[in-house]
């Protein structure tokens, strides 16, 4: 009966994952390998293709300053600067949507919603960037990443070519993702792993750690059993997956440092209010 409960938990979290996250790993890998009936993604590999592909990116509510300036004779460098900032803003909008999706997923974890509300906030504040970073992995390969719900493929070289510190933002995620993807987790494994990350009892400022650790232990048991069943030939996979949690924390620390640098160096930069809340006093 205990194993049945753990399987039922795995099934429940997988269903919630499919409900809340629009681009699954299965779909992303199909797009990346060209095995989909949909159109191939639009490739952004330089500033020109970024401008051409911009209509696909969800930034409609932001003023298109670059396009306005283009007609008034702004220099190429100024335009490039504005395009980079605009792209960064559209990434922020998508990130804020993704935080909302992760929140809904967290709420579906059995027992999460009856935790102290302050602790729910803390778990999300510290967990959400880790979750979003791990969810980028299925969208990436060594050459680039899918964005905009898989409609666009942006090359790693282009992201590296942006001016600092924008150029420093994605490279550590590529390095992490290429290694993480070698574990070959599928969406059902990912659902359990995300729940484990969210239910971390060592987040700073938690008021009542015990119930969180109890919930996490249950999900960990479910993950261990699920990985044994789903990947019978992959030795020590459970341990390897858990080891990734250490790398994830380093990844988030780096991300927060880059955002700090951006806030100092970019006068035009305006962080999304939800992301500001999450970043404030984080590490």
């Amino acid at each position: 009966p205990e194993a049945a409960d753990l399987r039922s938990l795995a099934k429940h979290l997988y269903e919630s994952y499919l409900k809340n996250f629009p681009l699954t790993k299965a779909k992303a890998r199909a797009i990346l390998s060209g095995k989909t009936n949909d159109n191939a993604p639009f490739v952004i590999h330089d500033m020109k293709s970024l401008l051409e592909g911009e209509q696909f990116i969800n930034c409609c509510h932001l003023p298109h300053q670059g396009q306005q300036r283009e007609s008034t004779g702004a220099t190429l460098t100024e335009l490039q600067r504005e395009v980079e900032l605009r792209f960064f803003h559209s990434c922020q909008s998508r990130s804020a949507e993704a935080v909302s999706e992760v929140t809904e997923f967290a709420k579906s974890i059995p027992g999460f919603s009856i935790l102290d509300l302050n602790d729910q906030v803390t778990l999300l504040k510290y967990g959400v960037i880790e979750v979003l970073s791990i969810m980028m992995a299925p969208l990436m390969n060594k050459d680039g990443t899918l964005i905009s719900y898989g409609q666009i493929f942006m090359t790693r070289e282009f992201l590296k070519s942006l001016r600092k510190p924008f150029s420093d933002m994605m490279e550590p995620k590529f390095e992490f993702s290429v290694k993480f993807n070698m574990l070959e987790l599928d969406d059902s494994d990912m659902a359990l792993f995300l729940a484990v990350i969210i239910l971390s009892g060592d987040r700073p400022g938690l008021l009542n750690v015990k119930p969180i650790e109890e919930l996490q232990e249950n999900v960990l048991h479910s993950l261990e059993l699920h990985l044994k069943t789903n990947h019978p030939d992959s030795l020590h996979l459970f341990a390897k997956v858990l080891q990734k949690m250490t790398d994830l924390r380093q990844l988030v620390t780096h991300h927060v440092q880059v955002i700090q640098l951006l806030k100092e160096s970019e006068v035009d930069l305006c962080l999304h209010p939800l992301l500001q809340e999450i970043m404030r006093d984080l590490y």
Partner: peptide, 21 residues
């Protein structure tokens, strides 16, 4: 803490996800 994280708090309290993101 929830006072300093009004949007996160609202996301947690609302039964559906769409908020003024």
């Amino acid at each position: 803490l929830k006072e300093k994280h009004k949007i996160l708090h609202r996301l947690l309290q609302n039964s559906t996800s769409p908020v003024d993101l």
